[in-house]
Amino acid sequence: MRKIFEGLERLSRGGGEIVLAFMVVTICYDAIMRYLFTAPTSWSLEINTFLIIYVAIMTAADVQRTDSHIRISFFSDMMGKGGQRATRVVIGLFGVAFSGIMAWRGYLMAFQAWDYGERVSSSFGTPMVFPYAMIPIGFGLLAVRFALNVLDAITGRNQDDREDLQNV
């Protein structure tokens, strides 16, 4: 199970790499087409804006897996082993609750947008269900990851080594 879940996390991070490359290529393409040929795309701004949501949330679980989210560990480092484990449990529970609520309400948001056929009022007209759907998926993965953090803290399983943000 854990392996499958980690696979999902890596998959959505891998999607992020593609997203980043897509952004560079399409934004340059759009601007050059506009400048040289007066033929910009109708979709670049719209899709790339929604991809920012992807960058923000779809990689969050993977970053949490390696405990690489930005945090201040100054005080918790001063605590004993037991205290550290207890805080890990508490923080994990906060994480499950917050991410769970975000996923649940994000799902309702996406469902409603689909149900009512909400679209961007542009010529490209992206159906809003697609960008909204990233919230339940991303926060859903994150909620599961926090739950695993809690479990690991209770059972005493060590977290995966903290990989600092740039040394992946």
Binding site: R71, F75, T87, I91
Partner: peptide, 10 residues
């Protein structure tokens, strides 16, 4: 939460 070492976003 920040003091306890929670991720800032959380």
């Amino acid at each position: 939460l920040i003091g306890a070492g929670a991720p800032i976003f959380l």
